[in-house]
Amino acid sequence: MSVSSPIELVCPAGSLPALKTAIDHGADCVYLGFKDATNARNFSGLNFDPAQVREGVAYAHARKRKVLLALNTYPQTDNWSSWTQAIDRAADYGVDAVILADPGLMAYAAKTHPQLRLHLSVQGSATSYEAINWYRERFGIQRAVLPRVLSMAQVESVVANTQVEIEVFGFGGLCVMVEGRCALSAYATGESPNCNGACSPGKHVRWEDTPRGMETRLNGILIDRFSEGERAGYPTLCKGRFEVNDETYYALEEPTSLNTLELLPELARIGIRAIKIEGRQRSPAYVAQVTKVWRAALDKLNSGGAAGFSVLPAWMAELNKVSEGQSHTLGAYYRPWK
């Protein structure tokens, strides 16, 4: 799909202050969730109640920005109505699109609220244009968020063979699990992030000072141990340090952030419609810092074109401050053998 419009900047809003911060710093769209298991960031202290959604939508629309509502977990037979009611509320609140993963919910939304724009969530794990086109033909989706497992060549192939707008992640956290198929946290806690909306749910997390250092545990499983003064991250299994063959290290995945600033000209060339910033669980300060940098980068690309674009050291310095492990990666995008 050839796209002549500028790339949209889609930023996280885990709270009303974060929503306003994102918009004030240049986001074209914000994405948010309700205060329940219908979204994949179902943590205490995050997300929106009905009054906050209405206020957020009004704030965004007054500034000609968009609000996308993530309903991107999978309902079960005993709570199906909670998800369909969430779709009904989304339509009533006037959000610009809902981000869905479950085909049954897409069918409900398409039939009950045909005017409601549908986006396919990254949790849907659609990695081929054949899958994306099926969702378009069956449910009328207008945008798909690609999983973070595709090379640039594979992303380009998807874009070239679908009429669906394609959105990709540009900055933020990564995970070794395929989106929509997380098993590690479910194994440790008995609660699937894809159904309950939280990886490493807070009720299973414990922090404890010990003679050997600060220990973090998930449902009793030791995830990490931090020495005095060492920066301690939230305990998730995939980013824990474990002893393997008498050596302790990040056995599954080192903490690092995806950062595709240098790929912006290429993403624009192949027709990417939107860049998503990960981090609804992060603070408004994080949202401000990252949004400001990406707005500046996209504006530079839009005004000067690919030939005039370069990544400024100041941008990287700002992003380093909020990156996991203070390091960056291009992730799966950079796989020259693919």
Score class of each variant (00 low, 15 high):
Gln85Asp: 15
Tyr93His: 09
Gly104Ala: 05
Leu69Tyr: 04
Gly104Arg: 01
Gly56Glu: 02
His61Ser: 08
Ala90Tyr: 00
Gly56Pro: 08
Thr84Val: 04
Arg63Leu: 05
Ala91Gly: 14
Pro50Arg: 11
Thr84Glu: 07
Asp88Ile: 00
Trp83His: 15
Thr84Pro: 04
Asp92Glu: 13
Trp83Thr: 07
Leu100Gly: 09
Gly45Pro: 08
Ala101Leu: 03
Ala90Arg: 02
Leu69Trp: 04
Tyr74Cys: 08
Leu100Arg: 09
Tyr74Thr: 07
Ala62Asn: 07
Asn72Asp: 10
Arg54Glu: 13
Ala51His: 06
Gly56Thr: 05
Leu100Lys: 08
Gly56Cys: 03
Gly104Phe: 00
Ala97Asp: 11
Gly45Ser: 07
Arg89Pro: 02
Arg65His: 04
Leu69Asp: 12
Ala60Gly: 09
Asn72Gly: 11
Ala70Pro: 07
Asn79Cys: 13
Ser82Val: 07
Gly104Asp: 05
Gln85Trp: 02
Leu105Gln: 15
Asn72His: 06
Trp80Tyr: 12
Leu71Met: 02
Ala101Phe: 04
Val53Met: 12
Asn47Ala: 12
Ile99Gln: 10
Lys66Trp: 00
Leu71Thr: 03
Leu105Thr: 09
Lys64Asp: 15
Ile99Gly: 14
Thr73Gln: 06
Ala51Arg: 11
Val57Gln: 10
Gly104Ile: 00
Pro75Phe: 02
Asp102Asn: 14
Phe48Ile: 04
Phe48Lys: 14
Gln52Thr: 11
Phe48Arg: 13
Val57Gly: 10
Leu69Gly: 08
Asn72Glu: 08
Ala58Leu: 05
Asp49Leu: 06
Val53Lys: 06
Gln85His: 15
Lys66Thr: 13
Arg65Pro: 01
Asp92Met: 01
Gln85Ala: 15
Ala91Glu: 12
Gly45Ile: 01
Leu105Cys: 15
Leu46Gln: 11
Ala62Cys: 01
Asn47Arg: 09
Thr84Ile: 03
Thr73Asp: 11
Leu71Lys: 06
Thr77Leu: 05
Gln76Lys: 13
Ala97Val: 00
Pro103His: 08
Asp88Met: 06
Gln76Phe: 06
Asp92Lys: 04
Leu69Asn: 11
Arg65Ser: 09
Asn72Ile: 03
Arg65Lys: 15
Asp88Leu: 03
Trp80Leu: 15
Val95Ile: 02
Asn72Trp: 01
Ile99Trp: 02
Ala51Trp: 00
Ala97Phe: 01
Ala97Cys: 10
Val98Ala: 13
Lys66Gln: 12
Arg63Ile: 06
Ala101Ile: 05
Ala101Gln: 08
Trp80Ile: 10
Ala90His: 04
Val67Arg: 00
Thr73Lys: 04
Ala90Met: 05
Ile87Met: 11
Leu105Trp: 01
Ala62Thr: 01
Arg89Met: 13
Val98Asn: 12
Leu69Pro: 13
Val98Ile: 07
Ile99Phe: 08
Leu71Ile: 14
Tyr93Thr: 02
Asn47Val: 00
Lys66Leu: 10
Val98Lys: 07
Asp92Gln: 11
Asp88Arg: 01
Gly56Asn: 02
Thr77Asn: 12
Asn72Ala: 06
Lys66Met: 07
Thr77Met: 05
Asp88Gly: 11
